[in-house]
Amino acid sequence: MPVEPRHITIERRVRFAVLEPHERPVTEIWFALHGYHQLAHRFLRYFQPIHQGARCIVTPEGLHRHYIDGKSRRVGASWMTSEDRLTDIEDYVGYLDRLHAHVLAEESRQTSGGSAPPRIVGLGFSQGVHTLCRWLAFGRARIDRAILWGSTVPPDLDLSEHGDTLSAANLHLVVGDEDEYFDRAAIEAHEARLRAAGIAFTSHTYPGGHRLDAGTLRRLAEPEEMG
């Protein structure tokens, strides 16, 4: 008899890390999605340069943890693999929607009435870029600005169907000029694909490789950039 994979839905706990705002009411919440082999609390350290004022920064952790190598037993996480990928996508989109609602509800409880809703920024780094794009396409959460850092919009994402959603998210593309995974040809092909689909975006580069750059992050977080 053929083996038939099946699924059930379970309750499980998920992990995320937060840099709480220095001031309230919160005016801006960042949801920063890490790359492959990273963990939420370690990834959060890269956002210390923009942790100021009424900005809250949240780093969700991918649902799949693994050992990075056998000797040190260092642990990392990822958002998905090619195995059972559609189920994983559905699971992490639902998880991110629930986390978004949880964080906004917590902030609302700590703030007196009458405050304007906070601006929501989504940042994906490396593997987190595909996760962020699919969250935008398939999720229900409001995201006012999307920063795609060090990767591309997923090749299998139908831009004729989801292009308007990406454009509405005030899309910003960021890549290092020496990124070992994302060379000039890949950048140009990615941008050409977005233009062909009529998707508006702003491009940013910085000196360096496949990493978050503190100076670029500060510039992206400046009020004039956020407008």
Rank of each mutant, 00 (worst) to 15 (best):
M1K: 06
M1A: 11
I8S: 09
E11K: 15
V14Y: 10
V14W: 08
A17M: 08
P21A: 03
E23W: 08
E28I: 15
W30S: 11
F31N: 03
A32T: 06
Q38Y: 11
A40P: 03
A40D: 06
L44G: 11
R45M: 10
Y46Q: 04
A54D: 01
C56M: 13
E61W: 14
L63I: 09
L63F: 10
H64K: 04
Y67N: 07
I68E: 07
I68Q: 12
D69L: 05
D69I: 06
G70Q: 00
K71H: 13
S72C: 09
V75C: 05
S78H: 15
M80R: 00
T81A: 12
R85S: 02
R85N: 05
D88Q: 15
L96K: 02
L96R: 00
L99N: 01
A101T: 10
V103G: 05
V103W: 05
V103E: 00
E106V: 11
E106N: 02
E106P: 01
S108E: 14
P117E: 12
P117D: 10
P118Y: 04
I120N: 06
Q127T: 05
G128L: 03
T131S: 00
L136I: 14
L136Q: 08
L148G: 08
G150L: 11
G150D: 05
V153I: 13
D156F: 02
L157H: 04
L159H: 13
S160Y: 04
D164C: 14
A169N: 06
N170A: 12
D177S: 14
E180S: 04
I199S: 10
A200M: 09
A200S: 12
S203L: 09
R211G: 02
A214C: 11
A214R: 13
L217M: 14
E224A: 15
G227E: 15
G227V: 12
